[in-house]
Amino acid sequence: MSGGQPRDEHTMPAAAAKLRLAETVKEADLVIDGVTMRFETREGAVTAVDDMSFSVERGEFVSIIGPSGCGKSTVFNILGGLVRGYEGKVSVGGDLISGPHPSIGMVFQEESTFPWRTVLDNVAFPLEIKGVRKAERHERARHFIDMVGLGGFEQRYPAELSGGMRQRVAIARTLVFEPKILLMDEPFAALDEQTRLLLGDKVLKIQEELKQTTLLITHNITEAVQLSDRVIIMTFRPGKVKRIVDIRLPRPRTGDVVGSEAFGRHVAEIWNDLREEASRGMAESEAGARRGKG
């Protein structure tokens, strides 16, 4: 832990996390082992992610948190099979992945609903691709539309919905093909805090119901603590696992947990670690801006 603060028994530094990885790999749905990703830039090679290892167990909700530019989204893209050329291994249920895996569903940070499709057709899209009959895919899509609380909006187009509603459409579209693992890259980043908390409640309820293994990428500490069983803290560039924090909050959870003392302790604990990384990130971007100006 940074700053010489006492470490409690629920937290784990990166080295111990590796040991735990070896122990739990058999029950894990998602295993990331020694993943390193470098990008070539005009200034030379940049290591975005450096020797990252962790696992996510079946039915577990894990968040990855880190300052802007620490490589969180790179990790998301690697796990989703959208980028290649990294070192290390990623496996899903024991299968090494080399591209998008059918067990993984992805929810993206940016607006990703199809503007030309109604809510119903957006959500039914993965089933349409699979060749599921129209009546059946619409029935299944309706179930997940209700689950994210958008019943009654089936025939609306995304342009007629708010940002939060559109993101729920994207979540329902991912859930409809019932992936074993749900990856979410800052899905509520563009939303206001109140909507974010309410949607967090929705996500908790859905996860409670579907028992899906979920990995959330976020830069929001409150969101990470509210939703997760464990929070992985990343260092600023190159992105490494700095520490893994177990969130000891009772389940089932609701948004009410945000007011609890234990919640506040977890937030403070994570912020203690994150502050150092965020400060480094800020100092580096200011230095970059100065260099650009010079």
Partner: peptide, 29 residues
Amino acid sequence: VRKSLINVGLSYNLTPSQQFWKIEFPAAI
């Protein structure tokens, strides 16, 4: 065409033809 829409197609393992006709072309209309 927005990268996020392309990524949605990739995440569903769409064939190049599906990717074009189901996502890229309608998005470009």
